[in-house]
Design a binder for these strands. Structure first.
Length: 490
DNA sequence: ATGTAC
């Protein structure tokens, strides 16, 4: 029924359709697979699927102690070892932990602020608003913050995440209540973080970074689920602010440092790897735990980063509209990590057990009633935030019942690239893309024009196609759509 | 993603 198979004997040919949006790579497609691969895709998206990413799904299925399936979300594409868009859960005792299953940008994630402003309030000041946000929030490769963390402050950030920011005047207690995990994973340990990683982290708390990271002014142009939207404090015509960034140089360095020790551990523990980039260590080994506890610190650093940026964003808005915070209603709706590994309880073969869930370019999507969903959202499920690419729509969804059965409580994370950065720079010119966007009413302010070319709307899959797959699967239901008004980029 | 270099 599909005509996408061009190659002969390629891995695509072994794909079996299980359901409308579920495709399976059966065990045995590649030797050594412990579980089947599963990829969630609609007919529309199957044509964009990279065979190399599919191959990575099969490779991950070979790792020891993997549970149920090696999975990929509809926005999947080629990554370091694991595909971006990959979800894999490993047994707490018999399984492994792998830095490639988290990615270099540990706790890259998204947060959404609501407001009492309407699109008509902000249209006339968009130029000033975008410019002031750009001035206030450092962006770009190697960007430095107004804030300089001391060694003890850095430790505090590593161990307590957003709480550091809130206790130091960069936010309010309610911000912590409306953040995945309260803006912190417990169990961090700074003793296996290199001085290099610390040095890179100190001047970057409160910086946006580069690439697909952004700070965006948006407005809600469509509500899909009025009841859930109301719970989240969202309505049509309302202005929202979205922050997409991660753990900057420190997370990258922590990943790099531990890849070395984990690679050695793979040999030491005689784990046969189909790909060196899948380096992993037995979950309870010192090597794996040292990585895991350092990764937690990077994740906490990222939450604090987004919290500090939130504070400066609020300052700019209150300055421009000369209103106090209560009037502006700049509440945090939620904040999600989409590059992280967590120890979570899941049901496998009818039994509850703890597993290390690796989400790399995948968002947690816990359903109604889950204990880790904030009380305010407990009866509708956690907010799932899906950033669009530059100039395109972003979405709010809510975690739905099927996520726990189908995907270890996970959903997609965004649009997913269809073109490399290098290719994009040849195809597009930053200045042209910027003026096209401005003609369609979207202000863009970037540290460098090349990032605008690399992130042009045409280099990503349609995020609405991606979101429709998780919606139709019942993993996460659509709540609202936001359109960009102004974008700050690195 | 990233002081864009093993």
């Amino acid at each position: 029924m599909e005509e996408e198979q061009e190659g002969q004997g390629g891995i695509q040919e072994s794909l079996k359709r299980i359901d409308d949006n579920i495709w399976e790579i059966p065990i045995g497609t590649k030797p050594g697979m412990n579980v089947p691969g599963r990829i969630f895709l609609s007919d529309k998206l199957i044509h964009n699927l990279e065979p190399e990413a599919l191959d990575q799904v099969a490779n991950v299925a070979m790792l020891p102690g993997i549970q149920k399936y090696s999975m990929a979300m509809p926005d999947a594409h080629l990554g370091y070892g694991f595909p971006i868009g990959g979800v894999a859960a490993f047994d707490e005792e018999e399984g492994v932990i792998s830095p490639g299953g988290v990615g270099f940008d540990i706790n890259c994630g998204v947060r959404l602020l609501r407001s009492n402003l309407t699109v008509d309030d902000v249209r006339p000041v968009m130029k000033e608003l975008t410019e002031k946000l750009f001035q206030s929030v450092p962006a770009g490769v190697g960007s430095k913050s107004r804030l300089r963390a001391s060694d003890s402050e850095l430790d505090d950030i590593f161990l307590h995440g957003s709480r550091w920011a809130v206790e130091n005047g960069y936010g309010v207690e309610a911000d912590l209540e409306h953040c995945e995990g309260g803006g912190c994973i417990e169990g961090g340990d700074v003793s296996h973080i290199s001085s290099k990683a610390r040095k890179r982290g100190k001047p970057q708390a409160g910086t946006l970074g580069s690439g697909n990271h952004f700070l965006e002014v948006q407005y809600i142009d469509q509500i899909y689920d009025r009841e859930v939207a109301e719970k989240f404090g969202l309505e049509e015509g309302q202005v929202t602010f979205m922050i997409h960034c991660g753990s900057r140089g420190t997370g990258h360095q922590i990943c790099t440092d531990h890849l070395r020790t984990i690679s050695q551990a793979s040999k030491k523990y005689k784990i046969s790897l189909p790909d060196k980039q899948l380096a992993c260590a037995p979950a309870q080994s010192d090597e794996a735990q040292n990585y895991f506890r350092s990764m937690i610190c990077a994740a906490n650093y990222a939450w604090n980063n987004r919290q500090v940026i939130t504070h400066w964003t609020r300052e700019v808005i209150s300055d421009i509209f000369r209103s106090d915070m209560d009037e502006l209603g700049l509440d945090l709706v939620y904040d999600v990590a989409h590059n992280v590994a967590k120890l979570e309880e899941h049901t496998v073969d009818g039994k509850k057990k703890n597993v290390y869930v690796h989400r790399k370019g995948a968002t947690r999507a816990f359903p109604p009633g889950h204990k880790d969903v904030p009380q305010a959202y407990r009866d509708v499920g956690q907010p799932v935030l899906i950033p669009g690419s530059m100039g395109t729509a972003s979405f709010v969804l809510h975690g739905a019942e099927a996520s726990m059965d189908i995907s270890f409580g996970s959903a997609c994370h965004g649009a997913g690239r269809v073109m490399s950065r290098a290719h994009a720079k040849k195809e597009f010119h930053g200045e042209d893309v910027k003026s096209d966007l401005e003609k369609s009413g979207i202000m863009v302010r970037a540290a460098h024009p090349s990032v605008i070319a690399e992130e042009a709307p045409g280099v990503y899959k349609s995020s609405s196609d991606v979101v429709n797959v998780v919606h139709d699967l019942g993993i996460a239901g659509k709540v609202a759509r936001m359109m960009p008004l102004g974008v700050v980029k690195g």
